[in-house]
Design a binder for these strands. Structure first.
Lengths: 236, 236
DNA sequence: TCAAAAGTGTTCGATATACACCCATGC
DNA sequence: GCATGGGTGTATATCGAACACTTTTGA
């Protein structure tokens, strides 16, 4: 019955990654405050005069209070039945308007320091950092989107290695960076080789400061040097 | 005036690459048969019960008669003013229906053997292989899409090196493959190193056959061995 | 003095780069 | 025999992978 052109709503959905020093987490929103497990990806229908990139920025701003978050579009999901489960239709009816029979979404990645205080002014009052391997069943194809997103994060890092620092505090130890890489690539990475790798990154610079009050040898802090990184980029 | 949610049409546009033994070409369609330069990317609004991937497949099938072409979604273009030029609006009015004030598109890449006989049953009767560096001014943001597409082709090859053979005849010489790589990466590649590289590809196998009737030493033909490639993939 | 994590070098193999000459064929 | 493109090998640099012990600190 391919007779009519689609005339539809379009949404954005954001997979926001955070890193808790052990594993990757994803920022989810709770639709129903009574239901502990009713989580979904933060997203929104896009407005009339709005680009999809702007819509994703808006969603992230309302969710976090951060104006310019790292952002990367990674795929349009448009299966005709992605919004056809009765429960999902019901929710769309209530949340937006009746008779949205189909919904196309554009998925975005973003990265966020997990301990950053979030200033949530979105309609979803509760947000939750959820470890990647404990993500509950979610509406629409949000589980599928999350599944695909990790691969995209890896591609993103390959394209621009400096974005991983969006996931770390301003001051971090090599060990933290190491655990982050292990979490992203889901494999153990030899620590000596890793030190060499970091030493070869001109945009990671050592600070004079060290950890205090740790019951083992104190680790040196490092920071990400944005200027060195920009210089590197323009030289290429 | 962000008060209303977008309710819109969605299209797909395909950047189909071909290789003429010298340079990359893109398959364009002529909108106006009276006007030599009125070319655009092949594309279509998507249907009601159709996924975007299926829509791209449909467009390519109608354009070429080929059922399963290589296909890769690469980006959603949704700037609010991408369809706001008067000439573009006029064309949308005529082509589809009046008052399409906005149009979101999902761009796809595809690769095609340039000498393949195309069985075009689309509404655009005339198609044209256009060298990448001679692409005329096109409607909407099609020039922008083409500009971005080459970078995506390179990423695609990095992800799956075997797709380049979609651009070559079934039998090809190393020299053809060499020129193809040079065209894609837009740089000269040392031919001896290139031979080594090809020798390391288990899915490129030499045939007994050689060129005939050439006024120089005849080159050996090679073919792409899909089975060797699949075995390689499953082993990884 | 012990537990816990930090920090540090060398070797090897694989891979990328640079570079120049002889070979086969048709005219 | 000459013009044209086909085909080949070696040396060097770079990168990634494997691998184990000493240092520092607080408890």
């Amino acid at each position: 019955m391919k007779t009519k052109f689609i005339h539809t709503y379009v949404s954005v959905d954001c997979v926001v990654f955070g890193f808790d020093d052990e594993q990757l987490n994803i920022l989810l929103v709770r639709r129903d405050e009574q239901n502990a497990n009713d989580l979904k990806l933060p997203g929104s229908l896009i407005y009339d005069e709005e680009d999809v990139d702007d819509a994703a920025n808006r969603v992230l701003f309302q969710l976090t209070g951060i104006k310019k978050m790292s952002l990367r579009q990674f795929r349009c999901f448009a299966s005709p039945d992605r919004a056809s489960k009765t429960e999902d239709k019901k929710w769309l009816d209530k949340e937006y308007q009746p008779n949205i029979n189909r919904l196309i979404t554009v998925a975005y990645l973003s990265l966020c320091k997990i301990d950053r205080k979030l200033n949530n002014i979105s309609k979803y009052k509760e947000t939750e950092w959820c470890p990647m391997n404990e993500v509950p069943r979610m509406p629409f194809d949000h589980n599928r989107i999350v599944k695909d997103s990790l691969i995209e994060v890896r591609r993103w890092i390959e394209y621009d290695p400096s974005i991983v620092f969006e996931l770390l505090p301003n001051k971090f130890t090599i060990s933290q960076l190491h655990r982050l890489y292990e979490a992203i690539y889901n494999k153990t990475i030899d620590i000596r080789n890793f030190h060499k790798k970091v030493a070869a990154m001109p945009y990671v610079v050592a600070l004079d400061e060290k950890q205090a009050n740790v019951s083992h040898r104190a680790a040196r802090y490092y920071k990400f040097d944005r200027k060195a990184n920009n210089k590197l980029k323009t030289n290429i």
